[in-house]
Simulated assay, not measured.
Amino acid sequence: MTTPQEWEFAGTRGAVTARIWAAPEPRYVAVLVHGYGEHLGRYGHVADALVRHGATVCGPDHMGHGRSAGDRVLIEDYEDVVADVRTVARAAAGDHPGLPVVMIGHSMGGLVAARYAQLHGGDLAALVLSAPVLGRWHVVDALLPLEEMPGTPLDPSTLSRDASVGEAYAADPLVWHGPFKKPTVRALDAALRRINGYGSLGALPVLYLHGTADELVRPEDTRVGIEAVRGEGLTERHYPGARHEVFNETNRAEVLGDVTAFVDRVLP
């Protein structure tokens, strides 16, 4: 497996740690955008598959996540997260001038990646959205009216049919296992509304992936957001019985194969 290098930069709200998995002769740059409460270190096998496919892979731990600074999982404005992701993407593109950039966002990272594409779509050759928080999210709908956030942690069994994935998640000290922060919930709600109202992603090639048994980010909720942003470049893949983390599912090889086949199809 490819060993990543870590680097740190001054993000919008404090120091941000980023990783890069370098390919010896890359033909494209892949930017990974992780989900809520987790960190980019959980994506080593995804990065490895992409490096073998010809990508140099990079991405940050978002503010308040993983090895980056900030109060845990506290995000007051998702535009700040988009800005930090852009810092990483532009640094990688600067190191590899002329190479196309593919962005891959999972869950909350799909929200960030979709917003990035709305604001900076000209920087991207393609976008991959894995179980993205788009349209509406029942978690936000339930928490938004509450003054005090319940302490119930995420159920690891919702992540994958592979029980070892949930076990590793529960034991990971860099994963947040506590309650949501109210400002983060408000920021999620604002970001969803902002993306829904912005409009189509146009001709940008987009691959949307989702497990049909995802109880954490429900496909019917995401469908609202996909319809709000879809353009002529949309491709969809739905995996029967798969749960939230399709890159960690029992059919992960099929999912990663779909991603690399999509990249081959859309890259110039």
Results as ranks from 00 to 15, higher is better:
residue 3 T to G: 06
residue 4 P to D: 03
residue 5 Q to E: 15
residue 7 W to P: 10
residue 9 F to H: 07
residue 13 R to I: 08
residue 17 T to M: 11
residue 19 R to Y: 08
residue 19 R to P: 08
residue 21 W to R: 09
residue 22 A to E: 15
residue 24 P to Y: 03
residue 25 E to V: 13
residue 25 E to K: 14
residue 26 P to C: 04
residue 26 P to S: 04
residue 27 R to F: 01
residue 27 R to H: 04
residue 28 Y to W: 13
residue 28 Y to Q: 07
residue 29 V to F: 06
residue 32 L to W: 00
residue 34 H to P: 00
residue 34 H to I: 02
residue 35 G to E: 07
residue 36 Y to A: 09
residue 41 G to W: 00
residue 42 R to G: 05
residue 43 Y to E: 01
residue 44 G to C: 07
residue 45 H to D: 12
residue 47 A to S: 06
residue 49 A to P: 05
residue 50 L to M: 04
residue 51 V to D: 05
residue 52 R to K: 14
residue 53 H to A: 15
residue 54 G to W: 01
residue 54 G to T: 02
residue 58 C to T: 12
residue 59 G to E: 02
residue 60 P to E: 09
residue 61 D to Y: 03
residue 61 D to H: 02
residue 63 M to P: 06
residue 64 G to V: 10
residue 65 H to L: 11
residue 66 G to F: 01
residue 71 D to Y: 05
residue 72 R to V: 12
residue 75 I to T: 14
residue 76 E to M: 10
residue 77 D to R: 08
residue 85 V to H: 07
residue 86 R to M: 07
residue 88 V to A: 03
residue 89 A to F: 00
residue 90 R to Y: 00
residue 93 A to E: 00
residue 93 A to D: 00
residue 93 A to L: 01
residue 96 H to A: 07
residue 98 G to L: 01
residue 104 I to T: 07
residue 111 L to M: 15
residue 111 L to K: 09
residue 113 A to M: 08
residue 115 R to F: 09
residue 115 R to C: 02
residue 116 Y to D: 13
residue 119 L to Q: 13
residue 122 G to H: 02
residue 124 L to C: 09
residue 129 L to T: 05
residue 132 P to Y: 12
residue 135 G to V: 03
residue 140 V to I: 12
residue 140 V to R: 03
residue 143 L to Y: 11
residue 144 L to H: 12
residue 146 L to Q: 14
residue 152 T to W: 05
residue 152 T to N: 11
residue 153 P to Y: 11
residue 153 P to E: 09
residue 157 S to I: 05
residue 161 R to L: 12
residue 161 R to V: 11
residue 162 D to L: 13
residue 162 D to T: 08
residue 166 G to S: 08
residue 168 A to E: 15
residue 170 A to T: 08
residue 171 A to E: 15
residue 172 D to V: 10
residue 172 D to Q: 12
residue 175 V to R: 08
residue 176 W to M: 06
residue 176 W to E: 12
residue 177 H to Y: 10
residue 177 H to F: 05
residue 179 P to Q: 03
residue 180 F to T: 06
residue 181 K to I: 01
residue 184 T to E: 00
residue 184 T to L: 09
residue 184 T to S: 13
residue 185 V to K: 01
residue 186 R to W: 11
residue 188 L to A: 04
residue 191 A to I: 05
residue 192 L to C: 08
residue 196 N to H: 04
residue 196 N to Y: 07
residue 197 G to T: 04
residue 199 G to I: 06
residue 203 A to D: 15
residue 208 Y to L: 14
residue 211 G to R: 06
residue 214 D to S: 01
residue 218 R to C: 11
residue 219 P to G: 06
residue 222 T to A: 15
residue 227 E to Q: 13
residue 227 E to C: 03
residue 229 V to L: 15
residue 230 R to V: 07
residue 231 G to C: 01
residue 233 G to E: 07
residue 235 T to F: 02
residue 237 R to L: 05
residue 240 P to I: 06
residue 243 R to Q: 11
residue 243 R to G: 02
residue 246 V to L: 12
residue 248 N to G: 10
residue 249 E to I: 00
residue 249 E to L: 04
residue 250 T to G: 06
residue 252 R to F: 02
residue 259 V to I: 14
residue 261 A to F: 01
residue 262 F to L: 10
residue 263 V to I: 15
residue 266 V to L: 08
